[in-house]
Design a protein around this nucleic acid. Structure first.
Lengths: 340, 340
DNA sequence: CTGTTAGCGCATTCAA
DNA sequence: TTGAATGCGCTAACAG
């Protein structure tokens, strides 16, 4: 195990008594005589030589890095997506660079500037909010960008999104089948992409089924967190008495469950609860929570693949993909038929 | 908003009618005449010039990137640590590169080789297992490495670890105070760093308090996940009847709670449960779970700062820091004194 | 098959 | 203050 100092092509070449070009060839598996290969290998081993990534990047014009920026690192659904993206891009030989983006939209344009510095070959972005003007900025980027989530209309960018309307509809249909009729809604902030989409889904779902839309039956947490969910849930239960609630994500759902049970409501008997994103916490909750899988993992995987494809072929046509949701039914929404 | 193509120092210099050195100076805020500054600024703006990160890195010998490798990305405790590390290094002007490391020890040496390619300036590593031979490899690294977690004795590396013995002791003391005496233990794999440390803590804690050590009261899940926890919990409750259980992490704790309540045990009345890591899931659980905070966030922050310091001063003395645990008491372990 | 050479884009020496 | 020239470590085009 050698190498305490950094060694370079030149050093290896000297030690092996060959040209640096030969060293480079051997290291890259290009044709060379057995004798040279042997000598270079030996010298490289002895010096513990490893090619320098930065120099290679400068020469090649690619960093073999992909940047990932997600809005809320705390939310389990993003963790799962990150994990999946990491898997896919790593397998393709890329490193993943985490670019934390706060809720401040200004962060996003900072990120784009930063990206133009060329520290990565492409970007996967899952923004919570997309101001109109951001669209143009994104489109003008020199480097490929894939967006997870909805885009302002007309923006031509590779994109993969969830079908929130269909997702909420799955939840509502299920609840109706279970005999529920007073279906409330705990949302996140409506000025976010998912918040707006899911509210839209809730309204259409109830309307389509002829259920009454009651303002008292809708609350918005100030963000998509457990803590904000507690307050929102309290507010909801203060102002109406639903027999079922659809929550915009699983964190809000467990918050609601906590508040509801603290008030003596039994889940699902008195109150059925359905979450969204189908993260681990839905499964881990007690009782386990029915949740709409909006395809977060699939979206993540698809986004990664879209970016990889575009890196290979910058001219490929723009793709905008919608992932269909599925429903995982668990105890929190299933009315017990008969029991001890 | 210009720039569709990449622009370089040379292009800016041509457009501004100055030398590339002057452009470089202006971009870096070095002394220059107002006139030149003005012309360069204008040209740079018009071209949408941004300095290239790769070229700068090659020249400077530093990438401004820090690599982070954690064992299990799924575990919430690592998510929290990652988040904290991201915060600290970003504030210091570094980007965070995620290097997924599987459980395969071979991944770790691959990582070290990869690190020697110089894609990052330093590494924060939180390994689940540290084979003897890895110690030397780590010490021999050309680039600074900070280890989160225990190290083989004698390895001189910046390191920050938890005091697991004290941590488990906190849990046991608390349970004894609550009047529990048959205190069982759900551990993760004992061939991991945390698994071994926490088992050690359990044994010493019970011994120190004169409580009997019963083999039936100890199980090891095959890893630190909820799923593995379900099986381990079932095994435990099959083979003994504890009145309290310490779990090696919060995932194992909620798994135990699920199994216990499914068997008709009431938490905490029949069974007190204490988890470890004090992650969100402990707080979100119903009832909320008492948990030992092994200082994961502090460890993360400390590790990041240690690395930043070493990057500034490679000659600084090696530091090995131990973070003291604290206990957060919640409903899962508190015996109700009187109640309706 | 192998060696020499020219940049990739930048920061920085050294002269002027 | 400013410009010309050098080299970070590597790959690739070109010669031999």
């Amino acid at each position: 195990m050698p190498q305490t100092k950094k060694s370079t092509l030149v050093l290896v070449a000297e030690r092996a008594g060959v040209s640096i070009a030969s060293v480079s060839r051997v290291m890259n598996g290009l044709p060379a005589s057995d004798q040279i290969i042997e000598r270079v290998r030996k010298a490289a081993d002895e010096l513990g030589y490893v090619p320098d990534a930065t120099a290679r990047s400068l020469k090649a014009g690619r960093t073999e890095q992909i940047a990932l920026a997600v809005a809320d690192v705390g939310n389990p659904v993003y963790v799962g997506m990150m994990h999946e993206i990491s898997r896919v891009v790593t397998k393709a030989g890329y490193r993943l660079v985490l670019s934390s983006t706060g809720s401040d939209p200004r962060d996003q344009i900072d990120l784009l500037t930063s990206l133009n510095r060329g520290f990565a070959d492409g970007l996967i972005l899952s923004p919570l909010r997309v101001p109109e003007e951001l669209g143009a900025q994104l489109e003008a980027s020199r480097l490929p960008i894939v967006i997870i989530g909805s885009l302002p209309p007309g923006v031509e960018l590779d994109n993969v999104r969830a079908d929130s309307v269909a997702g909420v509809a799955l939840a509502v249909d299920h609840l109706v089948e279970q005999g529920r009729s007073r279906i409330a809604f705990v949302n996140g902030p409506v000025d976010t992409v998912p918040g707006a989409a899911r509210l839209n889904g809730y309204v259409s779902a109830l309307t389509a089924r002829g259920l009454p839309l009651n303002q008292d039956a809708q609350v918005s947490a100030k963000d998509f967190t457990y803590k904000a969910g507690l307050k929102a849930a309290a507010r909801l239960l203060d102002q109406c008495t639903p027999d079922a609630v659809v929550c915009s994500n699983d964190l809000l759902a467990i918050a609601l469950m906590k508040v509801a049970t603290a008030r003596g409501l039994r889940v699902p008997d008195d109150l059925a609860i359905v979450g969204m994103d189908d993260t681990d916490i839905a499964d881990h909750a007690n009782p386990a929570i029915t949740s709409v899988d909006l395809g977060s993992v699939t979206r993540a995987k698809t986004a990664a693949k879209l970016l990889l494809r575009r890196l290979e072929d910058p001219q490929a046509p723009v793709e905008q993909i919608v992932i269909e949701p599925t429903l995982t039914v668990r105890a929190s929404s299933v009315t017990r038929t008969t029991e001890g």
